[in-house]
Structure formats: structure tokens, C-alpha cells
Design a protein around this nucleic acid. Structure first.
Lengths: 160, 160
DNA sequence: TTAGGTGCAAAGAGTTTGCTCGTAT
DNA sequence: ATACGAGCAAACTCTTTGCACCTAA
């Protein structure tokens, strides 16, 4: 079966190698925002003969083709998500590193207005919120870092 | 003469070496958002015996002290600006690379609301607009200053 | 005097690339 | 058959660090 991303590659006439197919599948199945190393890990699990250089080359290619969107949540590494995923922004939980997506029409309107006020036409924008889960009632512990596939963004910063 | 940033360093009890004084001065006089290499260039022009390692160490120190704010406008390099500069965001002119600063109270409010809606307390956020200067066509009134009491705190910067 | 800063070069982390071999079309 | 992709390691860019020496307080 053909993954969503693979289909897009074929539509654009890209040569589909075994490696590319695997990476396309990993991307199609990703519900998060993996970085290259994570993609490499997942792809390797499916097919050992994939090098990280190929992952780098593939994400770059897919980004150029508009199939993938590169994100930068700080921490120095680029992270990716399929771009037909729709317009949205990210809220990063500063305690767990988990990323929550959202969109907000009013916010978009405000940005348009701001750009206009400054004499510009808005081409694109980037918005990231960093937040902490609101401490609900006492007795409730701040969410543990779910064993889900939330990404370990935090562990990256050894800080100092 | 004591530069603004130097004064802040002294207030925090930092040892003021010659190099640090020069870097503090360069930062105080910067009206833009220089990266480390640019800071190094400017500092070297004032005093040749400064190494880029010292610039890196100094900006990190000042950032930890809350004196400097690190920005990431993409492109892989960190850029800096004094942090008592006030809360504001950046609009990057996609044609020239110039950075314009602005702030907007309504926008802040909207962000608070979004975070709250998702069950989070807003810790910080990052917003960058990418825009293109509007061809000012005579006769056409660019949308009246929508919600614009917060006067455009514009201040340009040299393109890269 | 001495805790801490500096220069230099080497090390790291993330990403790209030259070269040779392999394979989808 | 051949144009393009893959693997590997070296190269690159930005940033940090180990070490011997220096200096502000």
C-alpha cells in the first residue's frame, strides 16, 4: 500500500527508491514533529539499510517540493511535519516538551492588521507559544512525560 | 564612559574586563540584532585583542543574567539584543531582510486567550511576521489603522 | 592574592557534500 | 542504458570547552 507522502512524491514524478518509500511511510504515519535523527531511527527500524545522509537529503527534497514543512522549535534541530497538514501553530509544553497544535482565526486577523499598520503585506508568519499546564486542583501532579510518541525536546538542552 | 550594558553588568557584580567592557559598549550602541560574528567584528574594530570565544562566552553570560535576549530568526545563527528593550516582536521584510519591531496589546490578549483555552498558562511566546512592503498606490488608502493606538514602534536595522 | 576571565585550538552537534557504486525507470 | 539516488566519510557552520596564562577586585 502506498503511503500518503509516497503518493505525493509519485505525483511530482520523483524516483521512488526503497529508502524513499520507507521514509515517506514514516512521515505519513508520524503524528508528531520528528527531527532528522528521530526519522532516521524510525526508518532504520523498518529497513536497516538507510543512512542518515539519505534522510537529510530526502527531507530537504520533500521540503523543496512543498510536501514537508520544516519547523524550528529552538534547540538547534529542525523538525518536520507533512505540510498539507493545514495551517496551524504550536504550543510547546515547557515541562514535557510536548507540542500541541492549534489555529485561531482571530489571531490571524490581528496579524493582518498589524502588518497593514506597518505598511506591509503579510507573506507568512511564525508563532510559537511556550506554556505550562495550568495547575488544576491540588493533588493533581503535573503531567508526566507521556510514553506516547511525544518528542523529547527538552532533553536536548543540556543547558550550560 | 560607562555604557548602559556595562552599568547592568556592574549592578550584577560581574567582573569587568577590558573585553567585556568593549562588548558591552558594542551591545549598548547596537540598534539592530547582530549575531555573534557581527558583534565580534564590531568589537574587534574597537579592540583587536578580543577572541570570538570571548564573545560567545559573554553573550551567554549576559543572556543568563537577563541582560541580553537571544533571538532566532532562522538561518541557524543566534542574534542578540538588549532585553530591557521592552516587549516587542519582529517583522522581517522578505525582500530586504530588514527587521522592524512592533508590539500590539490586542495580540497579546489573544495569545493569552488561546493558551487558556488549551489549558495552559502562557510562559512566553515567539512571533515573527514575514512581509512585503506594500506598493503605496496613490489614491488608495491602506486600510485605516485598525486597532492602532499602540503607535508603530518601528526601528529598522541594516539588512544582512 | 586569587577567583575568575581570556586566547587558542580542538572538540561537538547538526547538516551538507564529494565520490563511487547501485538501481528505478 | 542512464540519469538519478544511496552510503560513507570528510567537510562545513555555529558554538562550546580544556588548558595554560592573565587580571580585576
Amino acid at each position: 500500500m502506498e503511503s500518503r507522502v509516497e503518493r505525493l512524491c509519485i505525483e511530482r514524478g520523483l524516483k521512488m527508491t526503497g529508502q524513499r518509500r520507507v521514509i515517506a511511510r514514516v512521515l505519513s504515519e508520524a503524528a508528531d514533529h520528528p527531527d532528522v535523527e528521530e526519522l532516521y531511527r524510525r526508518a532504520s527500524a523498518l529497513d536497516r539499510r538507510i543512512s542518515i545522509a539519505t534522510v537529510y537529503r530526502t527531507v530537504r527534497l520533500l521540503e523543496e517540493q512543498g510536501i514537508l514543512a520544516r519547523r524550528d522549535f529552538g534547540g538547534g534541530r529542525a523538525r518536520y511535519e507533512p505540510s498539507e497538514h493545514g495551517h496551524h501553530h504550536h504550543l510547546i509544553d515547557v515541562d514535557t516538551g510536548r507540542v500541541i497544535e492549534f489555529e485561531d482565526a482571530e489571531h490571524e486577523r490581528v496579524l493582518q492588521a498589524i502588518a497593514a499598520r506597518l505598511g506591509f503585506e503579510l507573506v507568512s508568519h511564525r508563532l510559537e507559544l511556550f506554556g505550562r499546564r495550568r495547575a488544576a486542583r491540588p493533588g493533581q501532579q503535573p503531567a508526566k512525560r507521556a510514553a506516547s510518541e511525544a518528542e523529547p525536546v527538552t532533553s536536548a538542552e543540556a543547558a550550560r
